[in-house]
Design a protein around this nucleic acid. Structure first.
Length: 826
RNA sequence: GGGCAAGUGGCGGAACUGGCAGACGCGCUGGACUUAGAAUCCAGUGGGGCGACCCGUCAGAGUUCGAGUCUCUGCUUGCCCA
């Protein structure tokens, strides 16, 4: 094969080293080591079939960090696996008749090949795939531990139900209120579902966030908002004419006397009791109203659609004023939030105000600004705190005091108490799908709900199940459903729901530590050795879901003693930015996907890796660019050519020793080597990972080497060239390894210590001081770094241009910033 | 509607702590080499002015000897929530 003049054979080299690293298991992380441990982790991918350069950005960042830390003397664990259960496999089965297991295995094979093609240094001996019985067995095992602890439970809950396909749909599968597959209107239906009681950990999940200083602030904020803790009070309205209470939660107890209606959800249980007292006309209207809301998603009800409601014909009794308050069923109060009922205070709540206007309900102002006098009718709700009026003996109090006083009064009456409410709801893990972990529960006519004993795990997913996209697939498999009760031996049926795939991914990082353990999901010893994850890298789209679920699992495991130390799994989290092409996300439907295979073939993966790290800081969105990558190809070729003269030369035993600089040019070259090394080390240890600046320093270094290439006898030039493989090793691992070998080394460059930045080499003999007059640069003087203030001003005043700008004016002030500038104010 | 982040040459970006704005790369221009192209190397490249100089980091104000960086107001874009 012919190569263009001045370029190196990246195809052969990259292939050669990928094979050799694998043969030598170069990146295997020993459990026992004298070095400090470092756990580097990227979010495990779903095996969708093909990697593109967008995926590569994530893995390149993680790989650069892992390689840097290895060269900085850490025992680095850098594992990889597959989030292999999930919907796409099932869709392939439905649309093309593919077997989900075979389809997934095939994709894993291809993507594992492509990850190797990236040159990423993973410890493949620890690889996991969540769809394998060896893995999901422990999923079931963990479910049973949660079940024992009362944290997994089954209850009725409204879900998205497609009446045509006879199945539950995930929220993401509901498009504009319709089933994404058959376009039938989706209904909300109450079904019995499995939940995990994450709300039991709400406060700890919230408090833990304060300690996570290695997480992006906006991710922590998002989790705080998601948990949505609010302090207030829960109290009861008695329903007139029935022996029933309606509980209400509010953070604004100070507005209690402003209540003009009681708003309840269309699914509120009290409606059943009301049927007995309201007219049949009202009852029919309520039923029709509830039905009209059935297909509406939460988003539509609370935000998109106009607020609607209907008077039930029933009244509640205000707990303090004893006034009659009409009960309305509304679209904007949701059964699943809080108590499913809110007190309607139009004067002091925007939503209630809007609703009251529409239905001509009275607006009673009970809080006024403490600084201003009340004036006429409100144009909009006054939602701030203030001073109470028209509130019996609470009038005149501040909002803050009134909240306490009213809470005490309600408590004394036995009608309420202070309470805390969360936006966070329990995690629905039931899926009526095939390609997931079977929930290990059996239903027995005599014993009821019975957990499958540990020694009967795993409950295997039966093969060859016909998938038509309708109903619950496992429910159609008689051999699966029909079983015997573990307790009494009588006939029983198995649970046919499978688990949400977020269940598997909530603890996978622990299985890497002990992937072949067949007695436990991991041993406490291994967890103690490796946890927690020092650096976790993945997309911001998981800021709440995956990262919150994992924290929940980890706290539970910590409580059980299964993990020790910190009760947070991820010490540091980094979100990489998107990679776009022509400003758009890469996708098959847009036809703008840049594949790994074609990139490896056309430019090489070292160039691709350098480009991905160089084009923007890693957390920013970046754009794929053919021109951009050709710039990195040029850099690699220039590195190669700089090194070529040293191939097969006698090995310089002292290559690591800092040679003395004979002149300014050599001093500059030496400095450039160490500036690049310092940048790489600093960007890693600061966890800023702005390797774009590090690679720019490498550009500068190579520029200097190119300029000085004539000086063949220079020890400094030889030193600089021999440093190149080490400097670029974390970013362009293949060319680094090849150059290292050609320099006569027989061990891997990736096991070498990184170049230690040397203070002497970084120091400068002279600096340029900027001389300003009135803040404008008028001269630059080259001086020794140690120059004193008086001496600096003396030299500055000798500059003709400085003098001309002073020109007889009076010097009012002199500012001296050592090493930077001096400023003369006249 | 609310919250957060960000706006720097033709383009991606650098300037991390208030101290030379535009490092480095892409693109472009000129030159060397070459039959020619590609590749490579060298030089130039924010705007204006012959020039000393002047202007310049979304817009406007402020703090400061000094602001891309800090404060306030507004605009635009992105993300998250509603």
């Amino acid at each position: 094969m012919l190569f263009m003049a001045g370029s190196y054979d990246f195809r052969t080299i990259e292939h050669k080293w990928q094979s050799r690293w694998e043969r030598d298991s170069l990146y295997r992380a020993p459990n026992e080591s004298d070095k400090p441990k470092y756990y580097a982790l990227e979010m495990l991918p779903y095996p969708s079939g093909d990697l593109h350069v967008g995926h590569a950005k994530n893995y390149t960042i993680g790989d650069a960090v892992a390689r840097m830390m290895r060269m900085l003397g850490y025992n680095v664990l850098h594992p990889m696996g597959w989030d292999a259960f999930g919907l796409p496999a099932e869709n392939a089965a439905i649309s093309r008749g593919a077997d989900p297991a075979a389809w997934t295995t095939e994709n894993i094979l291809n993507m594992r090949r492509q990850l190797r093609l990236l040159g990423a240094g993973y410890d493949w001996s620890r690889e996991i795939a969540t769809c394998e019985p060896e893995y999901y067995r422990w999923n079931q095992w963990l479910f049973l531990r949660l079940y024992e602890a009362g944290l997994a439970y089954k209850r009725e809950a409204p879900v998205n139900w497609c009446p045509h396909d006879q199945t539950v749909l995930a929220n993401e599968q509901v498009v504009d209120g319709r089933c994404w597959r058959c376009q039938h209107l989706v209904e909300r239906r109450n079904l019995s579902q499995w939940f995990l009681r994450i709300t039991a950990y709400a406060d700890r999940l919230l408090e833990g966030l304060d300690k996570l200083t290695g997480w992006p602030e906006r991710t922590r904020t998002m989790q705080r908002n998601w948990i949505g803790r609010s302090e207030g009070a829960t109290f009861a309205f008695r329903v007139e004419g029935v022996d029933a209470d309606v509980d209400v939660f509010t953070t604004r107890l100070d507005t209690l006397y402003g209540v003009t209606f009681l708003a309840i959800a269309a699914e509120h249980p009290v409606l059943k009791s009301l049927e007995r007292i309201v007219s049949s006309e009202h009852a029919a209207q309520i039923a029709a109203f509830a039905e009209s809301l059935q297909s509406k998603s939460e988003l539509e009800r609370t935000s998109l659609m106009e607020k609607r409601g209907i008077f039930t014909g029933a009244y509640a009794i205000h707990p303090l004023s004893r006034e009659r308050v009409p009960i309305w069923v509304t679209s904007y109060v949701l059964a699943e939030y809080g108590t499913g009922a809110v007190m309607g205070v139009p004067a002091h709540d925007e939503r209630d105000f809007e609703f009251a206007r529409k239905y001509a309900l009275p607006v009673v102002t009970v809080v006024v600004p403490s600084t201003a006098q009340p004036d006429g009718a409100l144009e909009q709700a006054y939602v701030e705190d203030g001073r109470l009026i028209a509130s019996e003996e609470f009038s005149g109090m501040s909002s803050e005091r009134a909240r306490d006083a009213i809470a005490q009064r309600l408590a004394a009456l036995g009608r309420g108490k202070t309470s805390v409410n969360y936006k966070l709801r329990d995690w629905l893990i039931s899926r009526q799908r095939y390609w997931g972990t079977p929930i290990p529960i059996v239903y027995c006519g005599a014993c009821g709900e019975v957990p499958v004993p540990d020694d009967e795990l795993p409950v295997l997913l039966p093969p060859g199940v016909p998938l038509r996209g309708e109903g619950s697939p496992l429910a159609t498999v008689r051999e699966f459903v029909e079983t015997t009760c573990p307790k009494c031996g009588g006939p029983a049926r198995r649970e046919t729901d499978t688990m949400d795939t977020f269940f598997e991914s909530s603890w996978y990082y622990l299985r890497y530590l002990d992937p072949h353990n067949d007695r436990l999901p991991w041993s406490t010893e291994r967890a103690a050795q490796w946890m927690n994850v020092d650096q976790y890298i993945g997309g911001a789209e998981h800021a709440v879901l995956h990262l919150l679920y994992s924290r929940f699992f980890y706290k539970f495991l910590h409580d059980r003693g299964a993990v020790r130390g910190a009760d947070e799994p991820f010490e540091n989290v980094f979100h990489q930015g998107l990679l776009l092409r022509d400003g758009e996300k890469m996708s098959k439907s847009r036809g703008n996907v840049v594949g790994i295979d074609e990139t490896a073939e056309q430019t090489g993966v070292d160039a691709m890796r350098l480009f991905l790290l160089y084009v923007t800081p890693p957390e920013e969105t970046s754009d794929w660019s053919e021109e951009g990558i050709s710039g990195r190809v040029r850099l690699l070729n220039r590195i190669w050519r700089a090194c070529e003269p040293f191939f097969d030369a006698p090995r310089d035993g002292g290559a690591r020793e800092l040679p003395p600089a004979r002149n300014a040019a050599e001093k500059a070259l030496l400095r450039a080597v160490h500036v690049a090394a310092k940048s790489a080390v600093d960007e890693t240890l600061s966890r800023r990972f702005h390797y774009n600046t590090t690679i720019a320093k490498l550009d500068e270094l190579v520029n200097l080497i190119t300029v000085s290439s004539g000086a063949a006898d220079s020890r400094v030039a030889a030193y600089a060239v021999r440093a190149l493989p080490i400097l670029v090793a974390p970013f362009a691992p293949h060319i680094a390894e090849e150059l290292w070998e050609r320099f006569g080394h027989t061990t891997s460059v990736h096991l070498e210590p990184y170049l230690q930045p040397d203070a002497g080499a970084l120091a400068v003999d002279e600096i340029t001081l900027v001389v300003q007059v009135n803040g404008k640069v008028r001269a630059r003087i080259v001086v020794a770094p140690s120059i004193g203030e008086e001496q600096a001003f003396a030299l500055a005043l000798e500059e003709a241009n400085v003098r001309s700008h002073l020109d007889g004016k009076e010097v009012r002030k002199r500012i001296y910033v050592p090493g930077k500038l001096l400023n003369i104010v006249v």
